[in-house]
Structures are given as C-alpha cells and as structure tokens.
C-alpha cells in the first residue's frame, strides 16, 4: 500500500504548508498589532510629529496617504475604466489590442523602484513639479493603472451577453449600451478594483519616497511635498528613530490595509444585493 502511504505523507505536507502560511500571516499581523496597539491613541492619530517622529503623532502622514491615494485614483480611474471599456466593447482582438495588452501586462510587472526613478526624473525634475503630491500621485496613478484596467475588464466580461443584446435590440447606441447595460452590472467589480488600487497606493514606499518626498508638514496644495504612513514607518524603522512609534505606525498601516481588504471582499455581495433592490 505504498501509494496510500505516499498520498498520506504528501497531503500531510500540503496541510502543513497551508497552516504554516496562515500562521505566518497571523504572526506578522499579530506581532505588529500587539506591539503597536498599546501606543495607539487618538492623540497619536491627530497629533503632529515632533523630533522627527520620535514624539507626537502621525496626522500629517495620514493626510498625506489619503490625499496621495485619492489623487492617483482620480487620474488612474478614468484612464483605466476607459481603457477597459475600449478593449472589451469597442474593438475586436487585433494587433492594436495586443499591443495595448502588452503595455498593460508589462506595466504591471515594472517594479516600484523603477516607477520611483521615472517619477523622479520625469515629473519631479523634467516637468519641474518638485517633490509633491502631484508628482507622487501621477507616479502612483501609472503604477495602479494596470490593476484598474484588469479588474474592470474582468468585471465587464462577466456581464451577460444577453444584456448587451437586449440593449441594442431596443435601440441603444454603443455608448448607451455600455452605460446602461454593462457598467451598472460591472460596478461592484470595478469598485473592488479601485479599492485594491487604493490599497496598493497606501502600501507603496519606493515609488513615493522619490516623488512625493518626506516632508512632515501638512500639505498646502498639490504642489506641496508629503510623507505617507508607509514612508514614515520606513524612516522610523531604518533610521532607528523610534521603534515604539514604528510599531504604532505599522499598526495603523495594517489596520488600514485590513479595512481596505474587508471592504473590497464584502463590497461585491453588498452591491449586488443593492443592485437587485433598485
């Protein structure tokens, strides 16, 4: 019965691997939370950092994270959705679509440090935006663009063909068909993609640090530099400024990412139900 024994051993290993992976995830999240939560307070979230972050709070970095994320989405969302609509509804597979897909796939594989270098030389230096929300937001927008294109494309592809047929058969133009029959049904998937893109923007360090800067002040305009939470966390940890504040910032980061993930995965069901009710 060696096949049975082999199988039992192999399946044992596989179970172990799965449990181990979950355990590592729990360890990473748990450790940061356990060490970070005690030093978390309202004051930490709303206070300004002092002594480079050794004391005080992280309010400006929270603002920086949110603003930078929003600016990048503001740019990437219309581009990404438009691109996905074009690829799925306005054209047939051709050399052109293959080229566009190649661009999207390749862009998705470009490491964030390359985005950082590019954003620095193009937006910060060449277009003279300086380290700023605008430069960082544009860089991040290019980085999350493939995520939005792909998720939108996939969401659009799940819309039943019959909706398109009904829409056309009752006199819809192509754009009417897209806006009234396709997009409403694809919306939950599209929004999930946007939220995941926001998550990537929140988590990013390498592409942000060379484009948005590390300034600890509250930004005054899109031309102001900002420091995001992830960058702040990195600087606290690497420059040995304060382990305690690093853990606390890390905990806020983890909670943010958790919330984003929970929203992303629960949104689909919620929106589908709402859509049915309307």
């Amino acid at each position: 019965m060696t096949t049975a024994r082999t199988q039992r051993f192999a399946f044992g290993c596989i179970w172990l691997a799965a449990v181990f992976t979950l355990a590592v995830l729990a360890l990473v999240v748990g450790l940061i939370m356990v060490r970070g939560l005690p030093s978390l307070s309202i004051g930490f979230l709303t206070g300004t950092p002092e002594n480079l972050g050794r004391d005080g709070g992280i309010f400006p970095t929270i603002v920086g994270t949110i603003v930078l994320g929003l600016v990048s989405l503001l740019i990437a969302t219309p581009l990404g959705i438009g691109s996905a609509i074009y690829l799925t509804e306005y054209t047939h597979e051709s050399l052109l679509t293959r080229a566009i897909r190649f661009g999207t796939e390749s862009l998705a594989g470009v490491p964030s440090i390359i985005f950082g270098l590019f954003g620095f030389i193009f937006f910060v230096t060449y277009l003279q935006m300086g380290w700023s929300i605008l430069a960082g937001g544009l860089t991040l927008a290019l980085m999350v663009l493939p995520t939005i294109i792909r998720t939108t494309e996939e969401a659009i592809r799940t819309v039943p063909q019959s909706y398109r047929n009904v829409s056309y058969s009752l006199g819809a133009t192509r754009w009417q068909m897209v806006t009234t029959a396709v997009l409403p049904s694809a919306l939950p998937g599209i929004i999930t993609g946007i939220i995941l893109a926001f998550g990537r923007a929140v988590s990013e360090t390498a592409a942000v640090i060379f484009t948005a800067g590390t300034a600890l002040n509250l930004p005054k305009s899109v031309f102001s530099p900002v420091r995001t939470m992830a960058v702040h966390f990195y600087i606290l940890a690497v420059e040995g400024i304060s382990l305690e504040k690093a853990y606390a910032t890390g905990a806020v980061l983890i909670v943010t990412v958790l919330i984003i993930n929970v929203i992303a995965s629960s949104l689909i069901t919620r929106l589908v139900r709402k859509q049915v009710r309307r």
């Binding site: 959705i81 438009g82 661009g103 999207t104 470009v110 590019f118 030389i121």
Partner: peptide, 25 residues
C-alpha cells in the same frame, strides 16, 4: 469612441515614457 481609444493607449504610453526616460538617464 475616440476618447476611449486615447485612454486605451494610457498604459502603453506610460510604458514608453518610463522606458525612454530611464534609458535616457
């Protein structure tokens, strides 16, 4: 349709710009 076509080139243009500026530097 024209506007959508333009947006569809976004990723490709981004890739082109990145390649050009990184290499150029």
């Amino acid at each position: 349709s024209f506007i959508l076509l333009i947006t569809a080139f976004g990723a490709l243009v981004a890739l082109g710009l990145i390649t050009y500026f990184i290499f150029q530097a």
